[in-house]
Amino acid sequence: MRFEDIEIGDELPAEQPDVRVERVREFAKTAGMLTGRFVDHQKAREQGLPGAILPGIMSQALLAAVIHRWAPGCAIQQIDTVFRAPILVDSHPTTRGVVTSTDAGAQTVDVDLTIENEAGETRVIGTAVVRLD
């Protein structure tokens, strides 16, 4: 993917990331977040949550990975995520992205990012500035 190939409105392929509890436990362990609310549905419910929830930074990391698959070799210069509502572990969320602007001088594109739950509700929003050569 080269900068010249990209136009405003181009969509990144939607993905269904793996948020099964085994994978989230792996992430939480490496990120030092191995607490019940992220990896144990029962313990999360005891804390008043509907179930174990995805760590926010894992959402962000999933979105960064989506960008890299869309544009191999690109450089993410900035990525910003707003965790508007929790994503449940063992659910089936969908990541989406769309190019909203391009800067020929800087060879960068701005991308809007979202993660939706099964009901189509947007749970995470974000943006990224991505450089392509």
Partner: peptide, 17 residues
């Protein structure tokens, strides 16, 4: 505080789309 859109980009998007 939670807005992530530049006004100029809104404008470009409206016209492009």
């Amino acid at each position: 505080d939670d807005g992530r859109a530049r006004v100029e980009t809104y404008c470009g998007w409206i016209r492009k789309r």
